[in-house]
Design a protein around this nucleic acid. Structure first.
Length: 274
DNA sequence: CGTAGACCCTGCGCGC
DNA sequence: TGCGCGCAGGGTCTAC
């Protein structure tokens, strides 16, 4: 479900509700997520502590607690993190609940259980295996076509898979990889070894533009994405390629094609993308 | 080393 | 209506 824009939208929507509140109790109803939830570790770092800051790194939401702990949440494909009144009924797939001093609760629902909840020492996140090998943040200074070109040197394979490699650049998932390449006019199957500097610049610029617009429009809700207050996004209306197989290209009118790369659907225009 | 494919899990929509 | 199939926004592991 969620790529960088969705997690950023989530972060911004949760921030005003959570900052300054306190996690009184951590309830793990089902610990079998992508990695087993370490309930005691989570409680030790979070219970009784105030929420200080909300950050995002890649597709991870980082909840910095008073003391030295950070609660790390990854939504996988189907995760939803929502603030609710404390008395709201428990729903199916509600695996973790953070009970807040204000009486509300922060709930993680995740039907497919590809999500992740960790508790880590705040100052040592980058040393953790989940973060140690992550590439550049596309919306931070330091991201550029030159960075992409350098990372591509000596590598092979299609540019679409390259863009989705979190060791290169983080946060670009299956939707935004297709959208970025459509906007840049680059064919998703093009080998990274056959892309010149000017095209890398266009790809980087397109990624930034697409991600920013998606954030501004509240993320993409194809099925079930919702922010921390349960609101849907509307960037799906702005999608140019993703999910539009057979529909006319918005630029040239030719039908959008779908191919499968590394097991994932890719959408592109054969006329506009070279 | 890098890349392709299988796999993890549940739910939904589609065609029959 | 019911059933089987394919597909789904994530990441990781194995085999080559």
């Amino acid at each position: 479900m969620p790529e960088l824009p969705e997690i950023e939208v989530l972060r911004r929507s949760l921030e005003p509700h959570l900052l300054g509140d306190r996690i009184e109790r951590v309830e793990v109803r089902n610990a079998s997520l992508r990695e087993p939830v370490r309930t005691r570790e989570l409680a030790r770092r979070a219970a009784g502590r105030e929420i200080r800051t909300l950050r995002r790194r890649s597709k991870y939401l980082l909840i910095d607690m008073e003391g030295e702990g950070t609660v790390v949440v990854h939504l996988g494909m189907s995760g939803q993190l929502t603030v609710l009144p404390g008395e709201a009924p428990v729903e199916p797939h509600e695996h973790v609940a953070f009970h807040l001093r204000s009486g509300r609760r922060l709930r993680l629902r995740d039907p497919r259980r590809f999500g992740l909840v960790l508790a880590l020492p705040t100052g040592r996140l980058e040393e953790d295996e989940h973060f140690a090998h992550l590439g550049v943040e596309p919306l931070e200074p330091g991201f550029s076509g030159e960075v992409l070109a350098r990372a591509a040197a000596g590598r092979r394979g299609p540019v679409k898979s390259f863009l989705m490699d979190s060791r290169v650049v983080v946060g670009v998932g299956n939707i935004y990889a297709s959208e970025t390449l459509f906007r840049a006019g680059v064919h998703p199957s093009r080998s990274v070894g056959r892309i010149a500097a000017a095209r890398w610049d266009r790809i980087a610029g397109s990624a930034v533009a697409v991600l920013r617009q998606a954030i501004a429009e509240g993320g993409t809700t194809l099925n079930d994405f919702a922010d921390g207050e349960g609101r849907s996004g509307y960037f799906q209306v702005s999608l140019s390629a993703y999910g539009r197989e057979g529909e006319p290209c918005l630029a040239c009118g030719r039908p959008i094609r779908r191919i499968v790369q590394a097991g994932r659907s890719t959408f592109y225009c054969h006329g506009c993308q070279r």
